[in-house]
Computed example of a mutant assay.
Amino acid sequence: MHPVNAAFAVNTYSYTLRGSARAAVQALAGRGFREFELMMYPGHLWPDEVDAAQRRDWRAWAEGEGLTIRTLNMPNVDLNIAAATAEMRAMTLGLLRRFVVLAGDIGAQGVVLGPGKANPLLPMPHEQMVAHFHAALDELVPLAARHGTAIFVENMPFAFLPRAAELLEAVEASAHPDLGIVYDVANGHFVHEDPAAGLRRCAGRLQVVHLSDTTQASFRHDAVGLGTVDFTAIPGVLQSIGFKRRPVLEIIDPDPDRAIDQSARRLEAAGWT
């Protein structure tokens, strides 16, 4: 166990094909992690596979162990709340409603939401996509509040709002002043945005910070040190904006235990405490 692990939350992405989220969290907690982002994936964690009794047990177990379920996340490439077709938007919202209810039931503090994707060859008008985005928020944000959780929107390279400025503009134009933002450092770096500047821009709504490494030529969520992200400037930025929550290690690697521990140690060496 590495004591530095307690300074970070960890996302279960790399464990989605290996078994249940509960088993992954138990193993990660044994290595010092106390806070988690759980990926929604059939066979790992999926609403239809967790009945009411299991949800109560999940929450009681996590609270009894002193663990925090920070967020639920999902493979957003499969979903699109800003799709051109009403049927795809309806299907996506149907799944998201179930994710939100599950988050509330197991005590997760929020659900990570992708803004939606544009057709790369002939995108619909930007304002129309923003309208679909806002319509989804109008349904999901009140639902989350009723279930004791929240919605956090993330910057994603494949989404139609990939950079902090445009994401924040669309969020602030919505009718939801408490809507939070997830800033993913690797995602920002990949679209040639300075992550330090992106974090400062989102400071007023920042709820979650995702950490992984990537180059700007190939989109990755690698262990820290395998890409070109400069992690040294970010701790000072987070301190200056008053962000005190554990950053989330969202590392995707075939040997996740090694990659996640390695990332935590390298971040410690780069000034993260």
Results as ranks from 00 to 15, higher is better:
A7R: 15
A9Q: 05
V10W: 05
V10R: 05
S14T: 12
L17N: 12
R22T: 10
A23C: 08
G32E: 04
R34Q: 15
E37C: 13
Y41G: 03
Y41R: 12
P42H: 01
P47I: 10
E49D: 10
A53G: 07
R55D: 13
R55P: 10
D57N: 06
W58T: 04
R59V: 08
E63R: 15
G66P: 12
T68E: 14
R70L: 13
T71G: 09
L72T: 05
M74N: 14
P75M: 00
L79C: 03
L79S: 02
N80Y: 01
A82K: 08
A86K: 12
E87V: 11
M88W: 06
G94M: 02
L95E: 11
L95R: 13
F99P: 02
F99T: 14
D105H: 09
D105C: 09
G110N: 12
A118Y: 05
A118L: 07
A118V: 06
P120Q: 12
L122K: 09
E127T: 13
V130S: 06
A131M: 09
H132P: 06
F133R: 05
E139R: 13
L140M: 13
P142G: 12
A145K: 14
A145D: 14
R146I: 08
R146N: 11
G148W: 06
T149R: 11
A150N: 04
V153E: 02
E154H: 12
P157E: 13
F158T: 14
P162S: 09
R163V: 15
A165Q: 15
S174V: 04
S174A: 05
A175T: 11
P177C: 02
D184I: 11
D184P: 08
V185M: 12
N187V: 08
G188C: 03
G188L: 03
H189E: 02
F190G: 01
F190S: 00
F190R: 00
H192V: 09
E193G: 07
E193T: 05
D194E: 15
P195Y: 00
A197Q: 15
L206H: 00
Q207G: 11
Q207I: 03
Q207D: 05
V208A: 07
V208F: 06
V209N: 00
S218I: 13
R220W: 07
H221T: 11
D222F: 10
V224Y: 02
T232H: 06
P235W: 00
P235D: 00
V237Q: 01
L238K: 03
R246M: 03
E250A: 03
D253E: 04
D255W: 06
P256W: 09
I260R: 05
S263A: 04
S263I: 03
S263D: 02
S263R: 05
A264Q: 04
G271H: 03
T273R: 15
